[in-house]
Design a protein around this nucleic acid. Structure first.
Lengths: 336, 336
DNA sequence: GCCTAGGATGGGAGCGCTCCCAATCCGCTG
DNA sequence: CAGCGGATTGGGAGCGCTCCCATCCTAGGC
C-alpha cells in the first residue's frame, strides 16, 4: 500500500520530487508523467494534508464562522442558504470548509480559529454593528471575507447588499401608491441590516415629506416581533407597514387579519428576503429579493481570489437587491 | 514572536520536550510547569495543528457529511437542528468540524474525505436505504457514526430513532379515537425514515385489523406532496391522515380545508417531527416529537467516545420518540 | 555518606510533504 | 563534434510537532 510520496517514487521509478511535481502540476517530461500517473491510478495514493500543510504553509481549508444566537440560527432559512452558497463556491474550488457555529463565547471562538494555524482564511458573518470576534479576526493576519457587513474600515473584504437603498426603494414604492402613514417594523437593533434598513426608511420618508406620520418600532426579525410591531403600528393608524424581513411580515399579516383589516386596501404590507413562503402568502407579499445563496457564493469566490492574489487589495462586493411587487401592496384585496 | 515550541523552550529556559509535556499534560516538575505556563501566557503561543497532526497522527478534527438534495437541505429546519446539535457536542469536546454539504457527487465527496487523512473520524447522515458514500465510508478505516440510519450490518455505529415504532404509535392512537379509514402520506421513498414509517403504519394497521380501508400514498416530505397526497386520500374517503412529517401535514391541512372538511371531526391529522409550527397550526397538530438536536449531540458524543475507546465496539443508540397529542386528532373542531 | 529507584529532562529521529539548488540531460547551433 | 542553453531531475533541508530513549536529578533507605 503506497502511502507516501517515496512509496510512489519507488513504484514509478522516479524520484519523490518528480512525483510531487506531477501531482502538483510542475513541469516534467511526458514519460515521467505517464509513469507517475499510472502508479497513482494503481495505488490510489492520496497526499497527506497535514504534511502538505506543514511543508507549504497552505492547507486549502478555510473557516466559516456563523456566530449567532442559537435560536435564530436555523429558524430562518437565511443561514442555511448562505451556508449552501458558501459550500458550493468552496467545493468548486477544492477548498475544504471548517465550520464554527455559535457555540462558546465569541472570544473563545476567536482564540480557537486563530490558534489552529491550519486555516488559509475565513468567511465570517458579521451581522452586528459591533462584534469583537470580527474585530479580532480582522486584526489578525488571516485573510478574511465578511458576509453581510460593510465595515467602515477600508481594509476589510466583504460581500453585502445595500440595505439602505433597498428600504428606500420599498418606501418609495409605498409612497407611489399613495400611502402617507407608513410604519416600519425593524429587525434586531444592533445588527447592520436592521440599522441600515431603518436609515433607508427614514431617508425615503424624508424625501417624500412623510416624516410627520411615519413611525419605526423595534423588532427582531421574528414572527412574534412582527405581531407585536404590527399591533403597535395599527394602533397608531398607519396605512402601510414595511417589515424588516419576511418572517415579521408573516406575523404582522396575522395581526392585521385579526383586526379585520384588508391587505392592501387598508394596510399595505412589505417584507424583506423573498423567502419561499412570501409568494405563497395570502395575499402574496411584496418584498425585497436578495440572493442569499448568491452572497454565499460570492463570499467563497472572494476569499479564493484573496488567497491567490493577496496584493490586489480588499474585495468589496455589494450585490443588487430587487423589489418584488406583489398583491400585498398593489392588487385585489385578500379576505380580511 | 514565539511561533514554535523551540522558541518557547528558549524563552522559558527548558527543552522543547518539556514545553510539549506541559502543554499536553505530561508529567513535569512544578518549577518547569510554572515557567512554561508563564512563557505561554506571555507570548500567546499556539501550537501548529498541521505539525501536531503530522507527528501524532491525530488532528482533533472530524468530518460532518450532510449529503442531500440541495433543495431539501435547508428548507426544513431538520438539518439545521441536527448540525447545531453536532456542533455543540463537538465544540464541547474541543473537536474541530469540517463540513461537507451535498455538492459534487457522492463518490467524489467520498474520495475527498478519505483523501485528506486529516480527519480523525466522521459523522455521516445516512438517510437513504442505499447509499454508496455511506458504504464506502464504512468500508474505510475511518471511525464513522451514522446519523439517522440503522444499517443492517453490526459493525456500524449510529444514532437513530425507531421510526417503525413511532408510526405504529400514531396509528394506534388514531384507531383508539375510532378512526377506521386511515391513510398515510409517506416521506420520500427510498429513505429509511419513509420506509420504516410505512412499515410501522402497516404493522399497526394490521394489528388493528384495518387493512381493508387503509391506504398509503407516496410523498417526499414537502408541503406540495402533502397537498397531493391529501387530495388522493380524501378522494378515497379516509377519516384520518398520518403524514410522514409536519411539512406534509401542513400541505394536507390546506387541502382538507379547501374541501370544507373539519379537523379533527371529519379527518384526523398527524405529522412527524414536532417542528415549531406544528403547535401553532390551527388546529395544533398531533405529531411525533423527535429530539433532532439531541440526535446531533449524541452523534457527536458517540464519535468522541469511538475515537478514544476504539475497542469498545460500535455505538448503537436509538433515541426515544414521543407522541404529542394535540387538537388535530382530539379536541374541538377548527373552522373548516 | 553511598546506593537505588523513580521521576524529570533533553535530544534525536522521524511524520510526509514542499521547495530550492545543483546536477544532468536533451536537442541544437556553429 | 565541441559547446550551449533550457528543460528535467534528484536529493537535501527543512516545516513544527510527538514520541522514545538515554541521561540526569532527587529523595529516601541503609
Amino acid at each position: 500500500m503506497a502511502r507516501t510520496l517515496d512509496d510512489l517514487a519507488a513504484i514509478s521509478g522516479v524520484s519523490r520530487s518528480t512525483v510531487s511535481r506531477v501531482i502538483n502540476g510542475g513541469s516534467s517530461s511526458e514519460r515521467a508523467r505517464r509513469r507517475v500517473l499510472a502508479a497513482l491510478e494503481e495505488t490510489g495514493y492520496r497526499p497527506n494534508l497535514a504534511a502538505r500543510t506543514l511543508a507549504s504553509g497552505r492547507s486549502g481549508v478555510v473557516g466559516v464562522v456563523i456566530h449567532l444566537a442559537p435560536g435564530l440560527l436555523f429558524q430562518d432559512p437565511y443561514f442555511g442558504r448562505l451556508l449552501q452558497g458558501v459550500a458550493d463556491a468552496l467545493a468548486e474550488r477544492s477548498l475544504g470548509m471548517m465550520l464554527w457555529l455559535g457555540n462558546r463565547t465569541r472570544e473563545e471562538n476567536l482564540e480557537r480559529i486563530l490558534s489552529m494555524r491550519l486555516l488559509d482564511g475565513a468567511i465570517v458573518t458579521a451581522h452586528e454593528v459591533d462584534d469583537p470576534l470580527v474585530d479580532g479576526l480582522l486584526a489578525s493576519s488571516l485573510p478574511i471575507v465578511l458576509l453581510g457587513h460593510r465595515r467602515d474600515d477600508v481594509t476589510a473584504s466583504y460581500v453585502s447588499i445595500d440595505d439602505v437603498a433597498a428600504l428606500d426603494a420599498v418606501v418609495r414604492h409605498l409612497a407611489s401608491i399613495g400611502r402617507t402613514r407608513i410604519g416600519h417594523i425593524s429587525g434586531k437593533r444592533g445588527t447592520v441590516a436592521a440599522e441600515d434598513r431603518i436609515a433607508g426608511f427614514w431617508r425615503a420618508i424624508d424625501r417624500a415629506g412623510l416624516r410627520e406620520d411615519a413611525r419605526v418600532v423595534d423588532g427582531d426579525f421574528t414572527e412574534p416581533a412582527g405581531e407585536r410591531g404590527a399591533a403597535e403600528l395599527l394602533d397608531a393608524g398607519v396605512d402601510a407597514i414595511a417589515c424588516g424581513n419576511d418572517a415579521s411580515a408573516r406575523g404582522a399579516l396575522r395581526v392585521i387579519r385579526e383586526r379585520g383589516l384588508r391587505v392592501p386596501e387598508d394596510v399595505a404590507l412589505t417584507g424583506f428576503d423573498d423567502l419561499e413562503f412570501a409568494a405563497q402568502m395570502d395575499p402574496p407579499l411584496t418584498t425585497v429579493r436578495q440572493g442569499i445563496q448568491t452572497q454565499g457564493v460570492y463570499a467563497g469566490r472572494a476569499l479564493f481570489d484573496l488567497l491567490n492574489h493577496p496584493d490586489d487589495g480588499p474585495r468589496r462586493i455589494v450585490l443588487p437587491t430587487e423589489l418584488v411587487i406583489r398583491q400585498s401592496t398593489v392588487g385585489v384585496s385578500s379576505r380580511p
